[in-house]
Design a binder for these strands. Structure first.
Length: 566
RNA sequence: UGGGGAAUCGUACAACGGCAGUACGCCAGACUCUGGAUCUGGUUAUCCAGGUUCGAAUCCUGGUUCCCCAGCCA
């Protein structure tokens, strides 16, 4: 495994594995898990929970974890998704060495197993229509009815199934079914379909097959083929476990007997997690693609600037249990800040510029101020930031008529420019509509570097950018995609789309950055001092860098303002 | 109203018959050249009703609520 963060905690799944080790059922190196995505969409943070669980468990016990594509439905699956999944799991920091498999690798073996079932009288070809199968299945409270084709002879079943494979029948003409119990209280056991006819090109096997095995048949056998010991999946498959076990018990010549264990999938506040809804957001253009930084997809989080280690830390902290739960997105944001605080270099960038002229500073003078790159990391060193007579500060850092708790610049008030000088506001220039368009200030030459020799204090420190040296950039301010905690909640005639946050993206241009910000690589994260964590977007060009806000800093002033509003 | 699951601070996860704890959030304070970070303190929980026990979140009985299942999806 490529990554090893904090020691993993304990949970009911690890408890089961420990018990299996203690009882001698397995040796530690035999512990074998797998992450089995269907390549029909992009991976999201919910998948990350499963990825971390499976890979970390294997690593913790000294075993292995496979990557396996569950690609048994060619009508929904595409190579684009396969490629994105490989990229995302790697990016998260995990390595499956040579153990990347596809369920489609097993089509021939699965077919042989099906033949074995037929020969043993445990499976039959059913020629009911899909609609008839549904009616014969019965309901929650009424048992099903045996298919009229249930007692076909082995010879006839073999003949029909072979001809299904050869392509002699159209879609839907026949299916292969397990012969279990049409009266079972578990609907999954009422002669479930094992194979269906699908005249469809598969992204890996092409036109070789026109019958495809169902999940319930494929999954347990694939697990067995790969000697998976603990097959971890989500709660909705709990009902399928008897069928999973049935397949393992009745298929011939299986090398091992994996165990299915179910856990609760991740839900996050202020977002949706279902593949269907994420696909809809992309297809209908509510976001700009699968990797839109507002999406909970791995690729979206990556573009947003969220470090993989933060996602891993998050998955570690949310725990694993069987209770349906919705984790507060604030925990994810905390993990992102925690990681970025330690690693992100600091820069100054003014998002909503307000010009300041320092009247007593020489017009042609430029000084280079030494700035600390990261106070949390002494090894990150320092850099020089140019300072001159005309600078930009943040518009929100000035108030003409400040309330009591506002510490920043105001007429007559002195504040510090970070790493530079103390300045005092001496004048306010407005346009004809009364808006403040420029400030006049004076500086105290004795405060160079940001400290007053006489020991006087200021209550605020502002970030700034020299106007003459400023780099104009586009900044994309991202916020939560939905305006309510639970966009999935069913409401009167409303869909989740009605709860999209109209302010989830605000684009700012021009923002003024210190020159060093022109040299960031695409994807690189940094902190804009006092504003938040940002990363360079791939849309950046040489003359117009683009930065995405990953997450803001904790903001005490915003909270004070909020309280004033309440 | 059949079957399968789950109920612990606001949220998530622990406690596995013996002081209900941790993290996030929130509140207050200290410190600070980022109203950041850091530090300190505080806040609030065992679904309900019985029972067993010296002792129950944990075991038993009965209820309640929530989630999943009637694809030739996974």
């Amino acid at each position: 495994m490529a990554v090893q963060d904090e020691p993993a905690g304990s949970d009911f799944i690890r408890d089961i594995i420990k018990a299996d080790l203690d009882s001698g059922k397995y040796t530690p190196q035999a512990v074998h898990t797998r992450f089995p995505p269907e390549p029909n969409g992009y991976l999201h943070i919910g998948h990350a929970k499963s990825i971390c669980l499976n890979f970390n468990i294997a690593a913790q016990f000294g075993g292995l974890c496979n990557l396996r594509f569950d690609d048994t439905n060619p009508s929904k699956e595409e190579v684009e998704y396969v490629e994105s999944i490989i990229r995302d799991v790697r990016w998260l920091g995990y390595d499956w060495q040579e153990r990347m498999f596809y369920a489609s690798d097993y089509f021939e073996r699965l077919y042989e197993c099906a033949l074995g079932l037929i020969r043993a009288g445990k499976a039959y070809v059913c020629s009911l229509s899909p609609d008839e199968i549904r009616r014969y299945r019965g309901t929650f409270t009424e048992p099903g009815t045996n298919s009229p084709y249930r007692e076909r002879s082995v010879a006839e079943n073999l003949d029909l199934f072979e001809r299904m494979r050869k392509g002699e029948f159209p879609n839907g003409a026949h299916v292969l079914r397990a012969k279990i119990d049409m009266a079972s209280a578990n609907l999954n056991m009422r002669d479930p379909v094992l194979y269906r006819i699908l005249h469809e090109s598969h992204h890996r096997t092409g036109e070789v097959w026109c019958i495809y095995p169902m999940y319930d048949f494929t999954h347990p056998l694939s697990d067995a083929f790969e000697a998976i010991t603990h097959s971890i999946c989500t709660l909705e498959f709990e009902d399928h476990r008897p069928l999973y076990d049935w397949a393992l018990e009745n298929a011939e010549n299986l090398p091992t007997r994996p165990q299915q264990i179910e856990f609760a999938r991740l839900n996050l506040t202020y977002t949706v997690m279902s593949k269907r809804k994420l696909l809809q957001l992309v297809r209908e253009g509510h976001v700009h693609g699968w990797d839109d930084p507002r999406m909970p997809t791995i690729s979206g989080l990556r573009r947003r600037g969220c470090p993989p280690a933060a996602i891993r830390a998050f998955c570690d902290r949310i725990g694993v249990a069987k209770k349906d739960s919705t984790v507060d997105v604030a925990l994810l944001e905390h993990c992102v800040r925690e990681k970025l605080n330690k690693t992100a270099s600091r820069y100054m960038a003014v998002l909503r510029p307000l010009k300041v002229v320092i009247e007593n500073y020489p017009a042609d003078q430029v000084e280079h101020m030494q700035a600390v790159n990261n106070p949390e990391d002494a090894a990150s060193g320092t850099r020089q930031v140019p300072f001159s007579r005309e600078i930009y500060i943040e518009r929100e850092d000035f108030m003409e008529d400040p309330p009591k708790k506002f510490f920043r610049l105001a007429p007559g008030r002195e504040v510090r420019l970070r790493y530079a000088y103390f300045i005092t506001c001496t004048g306010v220039i407005k346009n004809e509509s009364g808006e403040v368009v420029e400030l006049r200030c004076t500086y105290d030459p004795a405060t160079r570097g940001g400290d007053a020799p006489d020991g006087r204090k200021v209550k605020a420190t502002l970030h700034w950018v020299s106007a003459a040296h400023a780099l104009a950039a586009e900044v994309r301010l991202y916020d939560r995609l939905f305006s309510v905690e639970d966009p999935d909640r069913d409401g009167a005639g409303e869909s989740f789309l009605d709860r999209l946050n109209p302010d989830s993206l605000e684009t700012l241009y021009p923002c003024f950055c210190e020159p060093a910000l022109g040299f960031l690589d695409s994807g690189q994260c940094c902190q804009f001092e006092r504003m938040g964590y940002f990363c360079a977007d791939p849309d950046s060009t040489a003359d117009r860098p683009v930065f995405n806000r990953t997450v803001g800093l904790r903001d005490a002033w915003a909270r004070i303002q909020q309280k004033g509003t309440d």
